[in-house]
């Protein structure tokens, strides 16, 4: 059974359709890449899955439960974390406060402390800056904070929206290394990326989104060598 199953999902912005009935599945332990051009509907897809945007039709199931109408704060509790586009850290709060908000749904203090240690060991830079206001971090550090904050909820699946956007190549590599590590430790990953080459290189399977519809589904390796994909998304 798929961990996350989206069936015929439709979303409209006013009268303009943003998603025209897309279906996809994410199985436990997979890294799934959702690639496509600007405006194809990638961010809309993630926002609808976590309940930030209402759907106009279709069904979203997570761990066998229908979450189509569930508000975001309850979906988080079920084990889904979402690292939004543009990091969206809380700028006027410290790194530590941001991380603790990530663990908002958890009650056990010892478990929270363990997660905090894990996040600090994965992102040593955050540990150096625990008392610094998040708004004063660099873009790459903010991305690490957003990822660390999401991991603090100890999610079963993590949705990442453009984690490499606006980062220097060194940070991009570091971020993708961390995504691979998170995945290898058992967290399922749904990754939205414009950097298709990077995304496909770490993904198991991928879906290609074009103006609100899924046009291609395949194994990530195969797509990396597919002529049409190479032309359209890998700049060759």
């Amino acid at each position: 059974m798929a961990m996350l199953k989206v069936t015929d999902l439709k979303v409209n912005y006013g009268i303009i359709p943003a998603l025209k009935g897309i279906s996809f599945e994410v199985n436990e332990g997979e890294v799934i890449a959702l690639i496509g051009a600007n405006g194809a509907g990638k961010t809309t897809t993630l926002h609808t899955v976590t309940g930030l945007i209402p759907s106009a039709g279709g069904k979203i199931e997570f761990l066998g439960k229908d979450i189509t109408l569930t508000p975001p704060h309850q979906i988080v509790k079920m084990g889904m974390a979402h690292v939004p586009e543009g990091r969206r850290v809380f700028p006027d709060m410290t790194v530590y406060q941001n991380l603790m908000l990530g663990a908002y749904t958890r009650k056990n203090a010892a478990e929270k402390e363990a997660s905090l240690e894990l996040v600090y060991s994965r992102f040593p830079r955050l540990k150096e800056r625990t008392k610094q206001l998040a708004g004063t971090l660099s873009g790459g550090e903010q991305q690490m904070l957003a990822m660390g904050r999401a991991l603090m909820s100890h999610p079963r699946i993590i949705l990442m929206d453009e984690p490499s956007m606006g980062l220097s190549p060194i940070y991009v590599n570091e971020i993708f290394d961390i995504i691979e590590k998170v995945s290898s430790e058992g967290t399922t990953v749904l990754l939205v990326e414009q950097n298709a080459r990077k995304a496909l290189s770490i993904a198991d399977r991928a879906y290609v989104l074009e103006t609100g519809s899924i046009t291609t589904i395949g194994q990530a390796d195969a797509l990396l060598h597919d002529d049409a994909i190479r032309k359209a998304y890998l700049g060759e």
């Binding site: 508000p71 704060h73 988080v76 809380f90 406060q97 749904t105 909820s153």
Partner: peptide, 19 residues
């Protein structure tokens, strides 16, 4: 802390599990 988070970014706050 939830109040502070909501004041800064409502959507991000709800993604933390805050109602």
């Amino acid at each position: 802390q939830a109040m502070l988070a909501c004041a800064q970014d409502r959507d991000a706050a709800s993604l933390m599990g805050i109602s």
